[in-house]
């Protein structure tokens, strides 16, 4: 196992009477993409800001490359916040160059422009670019110092599917350069595609941690059989598996799809609009937290 780039030891963060982060222990090895998932108000952003040094933890210890964070931490990390504007009246290129000049160690400008697909908007006013372009610029700014550790706070929130995939490609490329990425996201598909490890957070605590695959296996891999339309309740109660009636459909949770199909056929239920799928992270998330992600 590689040496951890970041270690959190029993981190607690209180805001007057509210405990936003409650005893988090974490070790992130270098070169991976770590995803922090959780419903709104779970404490993700607070934890992020504690790690970044914006907030001071109430207690606990944070080690970067085995040592407490010092001045070089800011020189060696890159941060993309959820909501950030840039100083006005600067072009994209000037914005990028200005932030790059704030660091001793600078990433190659052409590399940043190329990696984040900024070639076509370099001379454009940073206030007149689209949401996807702004996210790419924010990412380029986060990479301006060629950081070893990159924090991305919901980098694709509000982007169209094409822009999201664009950003995923950039994150994959960053990872391929042996950089460590820590991201928060609301999109489970994003976490499943990008993250080597994830932690699901709720009420300030980690309630599950591991690789997406491990999490799905350890949390009882279930299949979902979905019947569109309505079915008589008297028939459904005879099923040996749990089921739920949801907005115009019935969901049956089973780990034996074949048996379930057989029984449904025996019950003479119309299967012309049936679908079956494996449990994914989103299902697991709802199961663990009891909350819809994009509520």
């Amino acid at each position: 196992m590689k040496r951890p780039i970041l270690e959190l030891k029993n981190i607690i963060k209180d805001f007057s009477k509210v405990r936003a982060v409650d005893g988090i222990d974490l070790s992130i090895e270098s070169g991976i993409c770590f995803g922090l998932l959780g419903p709104n108000g779970a404490g993700k952003t607070t934890l992020f800001e504690v790690i970044e040094g914006i907030l001071t933890p109430t207690s606990g210890q944070i080690l970067y490359k085995g040592k407490p964070r010092k001045r070089r931490f800011k020189e060696e990390v890159g941060v993309q916040f959820q909501h950030t504007e840039f100083p006005h009246f600067l072009t994209v290129k000037e914005t990028l160059m200005s932030f790059r000049n704030l660091y001793k160690h600078k990433a190659d400008l052409d590399y940043l422009i190329e990696t984040c697909y900024l070639q076509d908007i370099l001379d454009r006013d940073n206030r007149k670019i689209s949401g996807g372009q702004k996210q790419r610029l924010l990412l380029a700014v986060a990479l301006a110092n060629d950081p070893d550790l990159i924090f991305l706070d919901e980098p694709t929130t509000g982007l169209d599917p094409q822009s999201r995939r664009h950003l995923w490609e950039i994150v994959k490329q960053i990872k391929s350069n042996n950089k460590t990425v820590i991201l928060t996201t609301h999109y489970m598909d994003e976490a499943q595609i990008l993250c080597d490890k994830i932690a699901i957070m709720d009420l300030g605590k980690f309630i599950a941690e591991g690789s997406p695959k491990e999490l799905l296996i350890t949390n009882n891999k279930t299949n979902f059989i979905v019947l569109e339309g309505d079915v008589d309740k008297d028939i459904l109660v005879k099923l040996p598996w749990p089921w739920k009636r949801l907005r115009g459909r019935i969901e049956i949770y089973t780990n034996s799809v074949n048996d379930c199909m057989k029984i449904l056929l025996e019950m003479d239920i119309d299967l012309s609009r049936i679908s079956a799928r494996a449990q994914n992270l989103e299902d697991l998330f709802i199961k663990l937290t009891g909350k819809e992600l994009r509520a």
């Binding site: 941060v79 909501h83 950030t84 932030f99 704030l102 110092n145």
Partner: peptide, 13 residues
């Protein structure tokens, strides 16, 4: 208000 200072604070400024 718009986060520019927060962003600058994450640089070694």
């Amino acid at each position: 208000k718009n986060g520019v200072l927060k962003r600058l604070s994450m640089a070694p400024t």
